[in-house]
């Protein structure tokens, strides 16, 4: 029972990381209607930034985290400006391929700068671990911080979208770009802001991910990125609560199947659950059913 609880809590923690990444995916998809395949690699950039600041330069952790957020935000906006903005009116498939190109670019740039060997990431989150149930269950500091930051991010993001003008503009653009332009909303700026927020979230996810699994290489972000994308689809792409629920369910399933079924097959099980969910609800758990007009 206690080991089950440990697996469950670790699963929720992993799921929280997926949820934070999935939020970035879902927001960008909702507004720009594109699958940003390079999102996973922004996570890796965030991880390397903290590595350079904290391990190489020896500066305190919060400086590292802050600069990771800044670097990734700037990177996200630059990527959008250079690679995606010229293709705003082009077919979605060409944007997808461009995003893949950006992903290759980031991975190989990291490979050249930092080399092919994996770096061991020094944990930057120094929170004491918590012991529950007379020492049967131990929750590490990273796990608590991850779950807590996911909750804070979700609350912050929901407030931002519902209460601020920029947030409302984001909703409007995701609903109807043309109408939003007519209402005087600067669509380009709104999209840039979305990319900035998504990339900042990716930076935070990168720090949390690397603190929990302390290895860093140029492909660190790829698989979590794909899984988070799956989580976003699972919860209904474009929906913010959906990303949270999808992420946490995916994380829990992954950890439990690793523990009880087979670590070899855990990815297969996660993807199989996704397929089953999409067969029952073709637009994900919280997705909107869009009626097709003839």
């Amino acid at each position: 029972m206690s080991s089950f609880l440990t697996y469950l809590i670790n699963g929720i923690s992993l799921g929280s990381v997926y949820a934070i990444i999935a939020l970035g995916y879902t927001m960008v998809y909702g507004i720009a209607k594109m699958l940003n395949f390079a999102h996973g690699d922004v996570i890796m950039v965030g991880g390397y930034t903290v590595f350079v600041i904290c391990s190489t330069l020896g500066l305190p952790p919060f400086v590292g985290i802050l600069s990771a957020v800044v670097v990734c935000t700037v990177l996200g906006v630059v990527i959008e400006r250079v690679a995606y903005k010229p293709l705003r009116e082009a077919s979605s498939l060409s944007v997808l391929i461009t995003a893949i190109g950006v992903s290759y670019f980031l991975q190989n740039a990291a490979l050249i700068i930092f080399g092919a060997d994996t770096k061991s990431f020094q944990n930057v989150i120094n929170v004491p671990s918590l012991t529950l149930m007379d020492g049967q269950v131990t929750v590490s500091g990273v796990t608590m911080v991850t779950i807590l930051s996911c909750a804070l991010i979700l609350i912050g993001l929901t407030t931002f979208i519902n209460k601020t003008k920029t947030g409302q503009a984001m909703l409007a653009v995701s609903e109807d770009k043309g109408a939003a332009t007519l209402m005087g909303i600067n669509v380009n700026r709104t999209i840039a802001v979305t990319f900035a927020i998504g990339s900042a979230l990716a930076a935070i996810a990168g720090v949390l991910l690397c603190s929990a699994y302390p290895v860093l290489s140029s492909t660190t972000g790829a698989m979590p990125g794909i899984k988070a994308f799956t989580a976003a689809v699972f919860g209904g792409i474009g929906s913010i609560p959906g990303a949270l629920i999808g992420g946490i369910i995916m994380g829990v399933i992954e950890n439990l199947s690793k523990a009880y079924i087979s670590s070899q097959l855990s990815d297969a099980i996660v993807f199989a659950v996704l397929i089953v969910v999409l067969l029952v609800k073709p637009t994900g758990l919280m997705g909107k059913q869009i009626q097709e007009k003839v």
């Binding site: 010229p86 009116e89 082009a90 461009t98 290759y104 190989n108 490979l111």
Partner: peptide, 23 residues
Amino acid sequence: DYRMLIYAIVLISMMLFNSAPKA
């Protein structure tokens, strides 16, 4: 080491050149 980086740049520029309305 630079080959996949160049490949990525070629890929992005080809996509921009081929599909961007302005291009």
